[in-house]
């Protein structure tokens, strides 16, 4: 039986949660298309075959080579290309993360095959699919003409879950032939940042846009974020002005957030900002303009000046917390 081959994304032996999304997609897709689910692990296996099996993989090819003991886009891409040549899957799937898309592009370049990034819907034949453009602000329907169909699924488009009927997760060793020169793009060093709440994991994000007015004027937002155990975020107008670092930017070319509550202050809600904020469970917009896109799309809003409102909210929070 022909297969859907899922690229397992892993870092130092641990499977990326995004791979669960790719496996969940592949499981349903394979069932509809009459294909088997296979997975490809690059480098140190350390239990990932069992994990891939629990998420539906019948067979797990483990590519073992010294060059694969840490991530490198060229060695991983070449390995995937060789696995595609050897196992001839009908469809190859990764999750559309930085690494997922990068390895797929490397393999597609080597095989001169098309590669469709960030799909949200795929027909069982994988000749027609819908993919994201503009970071998800727009969708594109495409047709794909290729001997092997390579695609990634847009992050969060499919929910990762254990398979109702687990796959066997049968391990099969695969020995790619990799030239030493491919070590040129292998990671040589890592700087580990102190863990804390990040923008993408914070339960509350307080976003400040151009309406905040200056770098100094973020102090009240910082204070409120601290009280709520959250983080301050911002729009691109703000990073462009040099008021906040780019790591605080929410949106198409910044971070995608999904907090319990996003408080968007002085942010108009341009489409490129909105795509990064729309996964928030609740949105409170604070804006002087009641027609701002952020206001009309939010569940709650205060139509007023953030400079007086934020301190008033902070005072009220302190009062209720008895501080």
């Amino acid at each position: 039986m022909s297969s859907v081959l899922v690229l397992v994304e892993s870092d130092q032996g641990a499977m990326a949660p995004a791979t669960h999304e790719a496996l969940a997609f592949a499981r349903d897709f394979a069932a509809a298309a009459g294909l088997a689910v296979h997975a490809l692990v690059c480098g140190t296996e350390s239990g990932m075959a069992v994990e891939a099996g629990a998420h539906g993989a019948a067979s797990v090819h483990v590519a073992d080579h010294p060059l694969l003991d840490d991530y490198g886009p060229e060695a991983w891409g070449e390995t995937l290309a060789q696995a595609i040549t050897q196992y001839a899957p009908a469809v190859v799937v990764a999750c559309g993360t930085d690494r997922g898309n990068e390895v797929m592009a490397q393999a597609a370049a080597r095989l001169d095959l098309p590669f469709v990034a960030n799909c949200t819907e795929v027909e069982p034949g994988a000749t027609e699919m819908t993919r994201t453009q503009w970071g998800g602000s727009l969708l594109e329907q495409v047709t794909l003409d290729a001997s092997t169909r390579m695609l990634s699924v847009a992050p969060h488009a499919f929910e990762g879950s254990l398979a109702a009927v687990p796959g066997a997760g049968m391990m099969d060793m695969f020995a790619p032939v990799l030239d030493d020169s491919l070590s040129r793009t292998k990671i040589v060093d890592r700087v580990v940042l102190s863990s804390g709440i990040t923008l993408s994991t914070a339960p509350v994000v307080i976003g400040g846009g151009r309406g905040v007015g200056s770098a100094e004027a973020y102090a009240p937002l910082e204070e409120l974020a601290e009280l709520l155990g959250g983080r301050v975020g911002c729009s691109r107008a703000v990073t462009n002005n040099g008021w906040r670092p780019h790591s605080d930017q929410v949106g198409q070319t910044g971070t995608r957030i999904a907090p319990e509550l996003y408080i968007a202050c002085g942010i108009s809600g341009a489409i490129q900002h909105w795509v990064g904020a729309k996964a928030s469970k609740n949105i409170l917009a604070i804006n002087t303009d009641n027609e701002a896109n952020m206001v009309t799309k939010a569940g709650h809003a205060v139509i007023g000046d953030l400079h007086t409102l934020i301190p008033a909210i902070t005072a009220e929070v302190k009062k209720r917390k008895g501080l």
């Binding site: 727009l138 594109e140 329907q141 495409v142 047709t143 794909l144 729309k278 009309t296 809003a301 139509i303």
Partner: peptide
């Protein structure tokens, strides 16, 4: 190449009946 655009479409939009909590502090 092998990827051909058929059409562009907008994703389903969030419609919200925004609850306005006030206009000042």
């Amino acid at each position: 190449g092998g990827q051909v655009k058929v059409r562009l479409l907008r994703p389903v939009e969030t419609v919200s009946n925004t609850v306005v909590l006030g206009t000042d502090e």
